[in-house]
Amino acid sequence: MSIARRRRLLNDDVLTSLVESSWEILDISGSDVTDVGLASVANVCSNLRAVDISRCGKITTAGVSEILCHCPSLEILRCGGCPRSEFTARRCLNLLKPKLNTLEEDSWEELDTLDIGGGAGSLRWLVWPKIDDYSKETLAAECPRITINPQPSSFDLSVSKVPIEALASIPLDHSIVEDIDPKTWAVSAAPQRPVARPNQNASPEIPIAERFRLAYVEREARLAPKRAKRERQQRRRAERDYILNDIDARSVALAAQASRNLRKS
């Protein structure tokens, strides 16, 4: 799947055909995966602890909600990176806010996971490089357990050490492909066809507008005799109808015919 993502082939069909329940990280950044594919993974991979949906313009709050609902161990979420993903990240603020089941404790630090219902109770690191000030202040006030854009720690203590999956400078699935030759996912450019040189002796190509004009002129010349014959037939038919329907015209016609017969005789 990591190679398919790097080759820009990752979509819902590819993702659902490769998904395994043993997955703990999911990197679909920059892919064509939609809410449908993300929901399918969420229903299969309940042990996900790190997810990267950055630069996924087809994922909305509906897909993020599926991940938060079905993956209780999610600790790291990467988002943003393109206009659509930035918009989705801002819309997800309410999804990340925890909802308290009890208010008996005096501080967030004294709350256990069981005291937090809904929201992203297990989320600890949010990687959102271009987070706006309002969203940052909102998360800091209402989600103090979430560290935004963490930096490498200088301490060795496990409590304060930032996991490598939470560092924006390193791809989330780096550990999976670090021993694979990059040539495996290199996308070669399609060979360019040689451009044919114009023949100096060939006649210049006629523009499409001129072709239509010449075709119209040829059609008019071909139909002109037929059109003239049709007009003569219509004129004779009109004269015949006039003579048959008008008494005076019929008298004149009969007199002219009688005069011609007398001259012949």
Rank of each mutant, 00 (worst) to 15 (best):
A120T: 08
E142N: 10
S107M: 02
S154T: 12
A141Q: 13
N94Q: 13
S73C: 10
S73D: 14
T138A: 13
T147S: 13
S73Q: 14
L100S: 08
D156V: 04
K97E: 14
T88Q: 11
L68Q: 05
L100W: 04
A120I: 03
R145D: 10
I131S: 15
I76Q: 08
L95V: 03
W125M: 03
E110M: 14
R91M: 09
S65E: 13
K161R: 14
P83V: 02
K97R: 13
I131V: 15
E105W: 05
H70A: 15
L100N: 06
G117R: 10
V159R: 07
E66C: 08
R90Q: 12
K136R: 15
K161N: 08
G118N: 11
S158L: 10
A120E: 04
S135D: 09
T138V: 09
L93Y: 00
E86Q: 12
E104D: 15
W125N: 09
L95I: 06
D112T: 12
P152N: 01
N101I: 02
L96V: 10
D106T: 09
L100Y: 09
P72F: 03
R145F: 04
W125K: 00
K136W: 04
G117T: 06
L111K: 15
S85W: 00
P144N: 10
E137D: 14
E104I: 12
R124S: 12
H70M: 14
R145Y: 04
L103H: 11
E110K: 12
W108D: 15
R90S: 10
Y134K: 14
K136H: 11
S107Q: 03
S154R: 06
D115K: 04
L103A: 11
L96T: 08
T138L: 11
G81P: 09
L123C: 12
D133I: 13
S153N: 11
G81Q: 08
C143V: 13
G117P: 00
R84S: 15
L157T: 07
I76M: 04
R91T: 06
D106I: 04
C92Q: 04
C71H: 08
S122Y: 00
S85G: 15
R124H: 07
C92T: 09
E137I: 01
N94E: 13
W125G: 01
V162N: 08
E142I: 00
S122P: 02
S107L: 03
A140R: 15
L114P: 00
C79E: 01
G121V: 01
S73G: 09
P129R: 11
P98W: 03
N94L: 09
E86T: 09
K99F: 03
